[in-house]
Simulated scan of single mutants.
Amino acid sequence: MQEFFRMIINTVKNISIWSVLDILVVSYIFFKGYMLIKETRAEQLLKGIILILVLIPISYLLRLDMLYFILSKTITIGVLTIIIIFQPEIRRALEHIGRTAFEDIHIIQDDETLDRVVTEIVTAVDNMSYLKTGALIAIEQSTGLGEITSNGTELDAKVSSGLLENIFVENTPLHDGATIIRNDRISAAGCVLPLTSNNNINKKLGTRHRAAIGLSENSDAIIIVVSEETGTVSLAVNGRLTRNYDRDKLKNILLKIMINRRSKRVKTIGERVKAWIAKLKIKK
């Protein structure tokens, strides 16, 4: 026992500031990784892996040779299997890292333009909700939606409530897909979105709601859904769907999300260079 405590004391004495930094970085990576897979099917897999890792040394110490052989071989081939099965979760994690590491280019920077665009969207949604016109609108943020817009019809039109309402008029060519808004422009309409693979969502939700959740799981886009059955307005953000928005509540939450994301954006290299040049000029 004394030898054990002596070893711990020696280890603590030899810890440097870089060792502490290393531990903190690794801890942060594990924490963010867990938050990304929390409440997903990957969380259950992680629990299974931890159980296997615990059983391997136990089976070895108890000389359960057959169990030890099976578990060790399972771990050996399990890494490739995990990559194949959980490719969507891995992609989502890498996209999340990319969003947080580099600046977005699709969030409106001007307050007046942002307020106008949000007002037009909210007006259209409110009118369609009253008329029970089904709608699916995705507001692009830092994750580019080029793959999504490419399967729809390109518009590149100024955002207006009248145009948005006209797009979703029943039996028109573009009403059954999603409309993508990039900056202050309607980029495309009639786009097909990926459906969520989450089996725990409400079974009463239709294809539009499942598509909204699916896109929000794979990007940081803000997706608005209007139910054609009830007129209920829903919002999908970061894989979560919230419902029953009225005009004022929807406008407030959209502005809050977009302004908050804009304030946290990371400056591009170009902006940093410009700022550095500006400082040099001031010093001169």
Rank of each mutant, 00 (worst) to 15 (best):
V118H: 08
V118N: 12
T119K: 14
E120H: 07
E120M: 09
E120A: 08
I121C: 11
V122T: 11
V122Y: 04
V122K: 04
T123I: 10
T123Q: 15
T123C: 00
A124C: 08
A124S: 13
A124Y: 11
N127S: 13
N127Q: 13
M128V: 05
S129P: 08
L131D: 12
L131T: 13
L131H: 14
T133V: 12
A135P: 05
A135L: 06
I137S: 02
I137C: 02
I137H: 03
A138F: 01
A138Q: 11
I139G: 02
E140W: 06
E140R: 07
Q141W: 00
Q141R: 15
S142V: 07
T143I: 13
G144E: 10
L145K: 04
G146K: 10
E147W: 13
I148R: 10
T149C: 01
S150T: 12
G152E: 03
G152V: 12
T153Y: 12
D156W: 13
D156Y: 15
D156S: 14
D156F: 11
A157Y: 13
A157I: 11
V159Y: 10
V159T: 10
S161L: 05
L164K: 07
E165P: 02
N166K: 13
I167W: 06
F168C: 09
F168V: 04
F168I: 04
F168A: 08
V169E: 09
V169M: 13
N171A: 05
N171W: 04
T172A: 10
P173Q: 07
L174D: 02
D176E: 13
D176Q: 10
G177I: 03
G177P: 03
G177C: 05
A178I: 02
T179K: 05
T179R: 03
I180A: 12
I180N: 11
R182T: 14
N183E: 12
N183A: 08
A188S: 15
A189K: 05
G190D: 06
G190T: 03
C191I: 04
P194D: 04
L195P: 02
T196R: 04
N198D: 15
N199C: 00
N199S: 14
I201N: 12
N202W: 00
K203F: 00
L205A: 04
G206V: 01
T207H: 08
R208P: 01
H209R: 08
H209W: 00
I213C: 08
I213T: 09
I213E: 13
G214D: 01
L215S: 01
L215I: 14
L215Q: 03
L215P: 05
S216Y: 08
S216P: 00
N218H: 06
S219F: 00
S219W: 00
S219V: 06
D220M: 01
A221H: 06
I222R: 01
I223D: 03
I223Q: 07
I224C: 06
I224W: 08
S227R: 10
S227C: 08
S227F: 06
E228N: 15
E229T: 11
T230C: 05
G231V: 07
G231R: 07
T232R: 07
